[in-house]
Write a protein that binds this DNA or RNA. Sequence first.
RNA 1: GACCCCAUCGUCUAGCCAGGUCCAGGACACCGGCCUUUCACGCCGGCAACACGGGUUCAAAUCCCGUUGGGGUCGCCA
Length: 484
Amino acid sequence: MTGPARTRIAPSPTGDPHVGTAYVALFNYALARKTGGQFILRIEDTDRVRSNTASERMIFEALSWLGLDWDEGPDVGGPHGPYRQSERQEIYREHVELLIERGAAYPCFCTRERLDALREEQRRTKAAHLGYDGHCRSIPPEEAVRRRAAGEPHVIRLAMPREGESVVHDLLRGEIRIANAQVDDQVLLKSDGHPTYHLANVVDDHLMGITHVIRAEEWISSLPKHARLYEAFGWEQPVFCHLPLLRNADRSKISKRKNPVSLNWYRRAGYLPEALLNYLALMGWAMPDERDEFSVGELIEVFDLEKISLGGPVFDLEKLTWLNGRYLRNLGTGDYLSRLREGVLSDAYVAEVIPLVRDRVDRLGDFMEYAAFFFTNGADYDEAARKRLVLKDRTPPQSAKILRKLLEDTLDPLMEWTAKSVEAALRAHCEKAGLSPKELFMPVRVAVTGRAATPPLFETMAVLGKEICRTRLRSAIETLRGMK
RNA sequence: GACCCCAUCGUCUAGCCAGGUCCAGGACACCGGCCUUUCACGCCGGCAACACGGGUUCAAAUCCCGUUGGGGUCGCCA
């Protein structure tokens, strides 16, 4: 019934490629393929301090690994480029001026201090709705022009109507009505000249001819802002479709504290891309014949966006693992071998392990035994290892806390994962946390390998990779918590 | 707190839009059995849900309202 749909996945390259990105990408991909349209990859790197190219590269790799190939994107180009928002600054600037002319946006000169104080005050007095108070909206236009010309730092805000309500339509939920008074004057253009999501997303979706905006549920509350922008520009709205959020077992939105969320981890741990995709599709989609196992191709054949269910699905690693096992068992020995050799048993990987192991092993037959922890997913800690997980003069809970800080403050944000960068990060962390390398490094070694005698720590961590290190650190932390 | 979204087995879901065929079907997990030198796979069987209260109707898991519960948003992050 629908014509060719142009859909997009628009990830922000600010961290490890996320399983939620794959989930949303899958349904965007399915609709585009089902309707004979296009699926576009757009990089939303307008947060200049957090965006990084390592993260962008990992997004490309992860989506390619999954086989969600895009028709237009930063790497392959296309008729509506550039597909990297940081390269579209001029476009946003022009559009924002248009909005100012039309009275739909205005410059705001409020300082961060004033904004912080305002927020603080609103929180303290438990104001009914939080948000910008419209202070700069009353500045006379001539004065605003003069101050901008004088180079006074400012942002551009959306002039949201204060009365009435916005009625927006969601494909799955129908009409959504939100009082305009609930919506504050969002920043559209930051003081560094880069747009925020709200502006960039509306402008790009329009310019790129996106027909269906399929994204996560967390965007529903900013729908009025987006609707207002389409209206102010005089553009027709795309179809909006908000997918439910993937959840942790406790039903909160999926997070790395409670679930593996990096696509790199699934790849490294030996999940097959077709199994992951199949499982992700099960989160909201059911085949007409209710079968659990199907390919993306089979999904596309019968796909219907409107049949997605809305309850926030709990991501169940156990069921994914079962599904993955089914896929694995269906592989012939030859295919199985190639999968192994694309992954943990690739020549490249084994070649990285050899230099770390060769001095420590005298017979090839002893290689696997010594190097076993390079080839397994988890780590288990025997009695001796458990003891060495504890830092000198600390209790197990204290040690758990220290390792957790290391993981969350230092290792998680580390995008470049090499022996050098890991060493630098670890040493810097010691400095910051007031710990000596000597007291911290042994527990870390045991946490990531399960053993006290290993090749040099940084090289070992580099070869193991971030994903394995982080999951083992997490299980070490859990182990320590259980020791009390 | 305000606003918005959601609500079928512990979990993923079918059924709901077009009310009766649903004392609710499938899958994961769990339990039992079969197969088997072991384990696993596989097969068979079992346990287990329409959140609650009103209303509409001859009839409600399905429609309406309320309550409760869960989630999201309230950033010069996306």
